[in-house]
Amino acid sequence: MTGTPMEWIRFVLTAVFMIVGLCSFICAVLGVFHFGYIMNRLHAAGIGDTMGLMSVLVALMISAGFGMDLFKLIAVAAFMWCTSPVSTHFMGQIEYFTNPDLSSYLKLRRRRGDTEET
């Protein structure tokens, strides 16, 4: 086998993080198909956006070594971690405002303008 032990250790670390990331994405996709309602699917999809993406990017950071690529990958990870919860929140709001049958799925809090006829 060619390559120093240090390079093989780096490869093993890369492979471990990559496999963890792949398993996270598989769990996220399975969760999206397993649940029946969009709100639960949003929760399952968050696994892919956070853990899956972070593991894959960490694997590639280890493989890239110390250089410009490392900081670019850190920038991608930081951006996705900041914007993915916002996207999820907006998707929940879209569901709240466009579903006329919301009360049959969710237990909605009583609001001040409501009477008992709801």
Binding site: A28, I38, R41, L42, G48, L53, M80, I94
Partner: peptide, 16 residues
């Protein structure tokens, strides 16, 4: 919303 979610997830996987 299911379709928007799937498109968002496809985008994340394409980034990877």
């Amino acid at each position: 919303t299911d379709r928007i979610l799937s498109v968002n997830m496809i985008g994340t996987m394409i980034i990877c």
